[in-house]
Nucleic acid binder design. Structure first.
Lengths: 112, 112
DNA sequence: TCTAATGCATAGCAATGCTAGGTATGTTAA
DNA sequence: TTAACATACCTAGCATTGCTATGCATTAGA
């Protein structure tokens, strides 16, 4: 069970990176991340929807209601210019921390 | 400026990994992490000390007051057996998330 | 026609992060 | 001498926030 801290830290970069591939909507994002992580990352709707609203308020993503072929209405999100920039800094910050951790892990016996 | 979410997610694995090299104390941990990260990760004392107390309560680390050669008293921490186990699961969880992110980042143009 | 899956939304409060403030000692420079 | 800085640890207290729990609506399948 992945800690809520790690979930909190990875949600923004994950959403931004997925949307960089093309538009998507809440429900699909949840499943995409579950798939990508082999079932280890499970977002709840109550966590993701408010977060998407917040990201939109921050100008990182833009939304549009659309009718899917099934007739169901979905709120599609896409990256804004600002979101694309933020994806890059999120990537850099993650690597900064990852590199610090990697240096340490290398010296730990029986870790890998 | 690294987000508080990313700081929160990385503090536990960083402390555990540093202590796996040998005992250390609060003030030194703060500097060690600053060094390791090229100055990008700056822990505050008000954040770290309560966290170390919490880790000790959880049984991840053990402490001992000692007199340093300079005559100053320091509270030295070392990994417990439980802490060593937790270091391993923290490592695995981090990699799970890191791998999911890496898959996505590979397809993003101009990211690297 | 009942259940499960899809799909979005938020009130409300329990939990918590960490700012801001405090204590104390050793060292260096003026 | 003594001021200033670095070292070293601690916590009260509360503003902030995460997300559980719940609700609504539609479509698919059994």
């Amino acid at each position: 069970m992945i800690s809520k801290e790690l979930i909190a830290a990875s949600t923004k970069p994950l959403v931004l990176a997925i949307l960089s591939e093309g538009e998507s909507y809440g429900y699909e994002l949840i499943q995409r991340v579950k798939d990508l992580s082999g079932g280890n990352i499970e977002w709840s709707e109550g966590m993701l929807y408010p977060f998407l609203h917040w990201m939109e308020d921050e100008g990182l993503i833009e939304s549009e209601w659309k009718e899917s072929d099934s007739g169901r209405r979905r709120k599609y999100y896409r990256l804004s210019t600002q979101g694309t920039r933020t994806l890059k800094t999120e990537y850099e910050h993650w690597l900064t921390v990852h590199n610090a951790l990697t240096k340490l892990w290398k010296t730990v016996p029986h870790l890998t």
